[in-house]
């Protein structure tokens, strides 16, 4: 039901983001989706990668503060109102979204959006009941992550 996401704590100063991407590049880890949250002093880089465990281990080895969290990947129609439908369901069930971002290299006419919510189980439950497609198995997740436009 969920996808593994990495969060890396970065100081808000020149070169820090690059330092993290360099570690991943050298370990041949492919980034599939990412978002960067920033404040005056620090930022949090959140990303979905092809080999999360390996990524955590190389980042830690290079003294990055890194965390693995579970997020929801939701497939929706890539048409006007696609995201709105999903948000309405979550709102109707009082699920709060901490943050969200879109996924690269999804299927044609479909969009994939990553959600970090306060009540993961409840969100899965209410979205499934409304026939919203969630990335629900490890295999599906893996396929998605490895899917690329050739």
């Amino acid at each position: 039901m969920v996808i593994k996401q990495l969060s890396v704590f970065l100081e808000n100063s020149p070169g820090r983001l690059k330092a993290a991407t360099k570690v991943l590049a050298e370990a041949k880890i492919n980034m599939r989706a990412l978002t960067l949250a920033d404040t005056a002093d620090f930022g949090v880089l959140r990303m979905i990668v092809d080999k999360p465990e390996e990524a955590v281990s190389v980042l830690k080895k290079n003294h990055f503060a890194v965390k693995m969290t579970e997020v929801l990947a939701v497939e929706m129609d890539d048409t006007p109102g696609g995201l709105n439908t999903v948000l309405e369901i979550l709102e109707g069930h009082d699920v709060n979204i901490e943050y969200m971002y879109a996924f690269m290299g999804s299927k044609p006419r479909k969009a994939l959006v990553i959600f970090r919510v306060d009540q993961l189980e409840k969100a899965i439950d209410c979205l499934s009941k409304e026939d919203i497609r969630l990335i629900s198995t490890e295999k599906e997740a893996e396929e998605l992550i490895h899917f690329c436009w050739e």
């Binding site: 969060s7 704590f9 404040t39 949090v44 959140r46 503060a65 943050y99």
Partner: peptide
Amino acid sequence: EISETTLFDEVRSLE
């Protein structure tokens, strides 16, 4: 310095 055990996925929790 933040640590391994610091919860920081959400900016709010860091703040």
